[in-house]
């Protein structure tokens, strides 16, 4: 019986994980921030640092610079991430990552946790957010540690 329940759960969860359709969480925006964790749990700052540094996952250093000295090739299209944790609260950082266009409609920063309002998304990324909710939380956890 227990096995059956587990199997049923696997069937329900299976396709959802594989295709990662609409974001399972609707972030609650309060003023200029999302005060609550998307996952209900705090993220992991070490994992967040790795995501920020990765050119294929977080992509952050393509445009931003940051205090990640082993990554020599950083961008200057956007402000440095150094001191981000002093400038913004955890909730403000979360909204800026989830969907910066809520604060500045013209921002060039991609919305990392939004799937609506995009055009001609490549098939392999269709319906997927750039980061998962857990990854957003990891990045937030890392950024709050960046204090001047």
């Amino acid at each position: 019986m227990r096995v059956l329940v587990l199997l049923a759960l696997a069937f329900v969860a299976g396709p959802a994980v594989a295709q990662q359709p609409a974001p399972p969480v609707v972030p609650q925006i309060v003023d200029d921030s999302i005060p609550r964790s998307l996952t209900g749990r705090p993220g992991d700052a070490a994992r967040g640092r790795a995501i920020v540094a990765s050119r294929s996952v977080g992509l952050c250093l393509l445009c931003h610079s940051g205090p990640i000295t082993e990554e020599r090739f950083q961008g200057d299209l956007a402000p440095s991430l150094a001191g981000a944790g002093s400038r913004w609260s955890e909730g403000q950082l979360r909204l800026r990552i989830v969907d910066g266009s809520r604060l500045n409609a013209d921002t060039i920063m991609p919305a990392y946790y939004r799937i609506e309002g995009l055009h001609r998304v490549a098939r392999n990324f269709e319906g997927r957010t750039i980061l998962t909710a857990a990854q957003v939380e990891d990045v937030v956890a890392y950024l709050v540690t960046l204090r001047d």
């Binding site: 992509l59 060039i108 991609p110 055009h119």
Partner: peptide
Amino acid sequence: RLRQGQLNLSCAI
């Protein structure tokens, strides 16, 4: 000038 793709960027940006 069309913003497109998952990263929502245009050539012009």
